[in-house]
């Protein structure tokens, strides 16, 4: 599927005119000599012990496959969650403006005039998390706050990009957990959105840097919930990333059954 969606799309100005390789031909199962970078500084606070154990095990698998494991530094990655939730909500607040009840979608009934139609439509039509993001995003773009939030976030994002480019100079792929914890219960963190956002630490960091990343299942935690590792590669180097992910999957096939239960 990647080979179909990858490459230039004439209707999307953000796509690049870069040749698309035959990804499948790179799936050789060979990880010998590959350099796997591990940002140990991101394996600290907030990382679930079971997740840590699974991911350490996976690092061992790569060693066994003949890969070299090296330490890498991503000094600005610790700001990634803050940066991401400023930029993403700013964009979301603007992207969602089109759901105003004028042309399509939900429209509140019986609003007496235009402004109240807008207000009621958006009040009734959006859920709590969406509203939270719209408000956050509106705030960070507001006159007087733009420089302190949105602009600053974009500057830090540039530093994060530079961190990744630097780290990927000395390795072929960066390995992290996909998520610091296993799945939480439905509704468990609805009242604590910050804890929920923190679960995105590893994934959104790669998104901010604009580099490719893939998530591969790598075991079950102590409670029997699935754990995954993430491999991040250089710009346009999906082929190496997929080759390493495939090599890992072949060496450590994930056939465990997670403990799935609706109530407990």
């Amino acid at each position: 599927m990647l080979s179909v969606v990858a490459g230039r799309d004439e209707r999307d100005a953000t796509t690049a005119d870069v040749a698309v390789p035959d990804y499948a031909s790179h799936l050789t199962g060979d990880a010998r000599g590959a350099r796997i970078g591990v940002p140990r500084a991101l394996f600290g606070e907030g990382l679930d012990a079971g997740v840590r154990a699974s991911v350490e095990g996976a690092i061992g698998v790569f060693r066994d496959l003949g890969a070299e494991v090296v330490d890498v530094e991503l000094p600005h990655a610790k700001y990634a969650i803050a940066v991401y939730y400023i930029i993403a909500t700013a964009e979301a607040s603007s992207n969602l403006a089109r759901y105003d009840g004028v042309r399509y979608g939900f429209r509140a009934e019986e609003a007496p005039e235009l402004r109240s139609m807008y207000r009621r439509t958006r009040e009734e039509g959006f859920g709590a998390e969406v509203k939270r993001r719209i408000m956050l995003g509106t705030y960070v773009l507001s006159s007087g706050y733009y420089d302190a939030y949105y602009l600053k976030a974009q500057q830090v994002r540039a530093l994060i990009k530079r961190d990744f480019a630097g780290a990927l100079d000395s390795c072929d792929a960066i390995l992290t957990p996909t998520s610091p914890t296993t799945a939480f219960r439905l509704g468990e963190k609805t009242d604590d959105p910050l804890a929920m956002y923190l679960n995105d630490i590893y994934t959104v960091t790669a998104n901010l840097a604009g580099v490719p990343a893939v998530s591969v299942p790598c075991g079950l935690s102590g409670e029997g919930l699935p754990v995954a590792l993430q491999l991040v590669a250089r710009h346009w180097d999906e082929a190496t990333m997929l080759r390493l992910a495939d090599a890992y999957e072949r060496a450590a096939p994930f056939d465990a059954r997670p403990r799935v239960c609706a109530t407990d």
């Binding site: 100005a13 953000t14 700013a90 603007s94 006159s143 733009y146 949105y150």
Partner: peptide, 12 residues
């Protein structure tokens, strides 16, 4: 209005 200008992410 506070137009909340920011760079258009959909266009390079």
């Amino acid at each position: 209005h506070d137009y909340r200008y920011f760079p258009e992410p959909d266009l390079p």
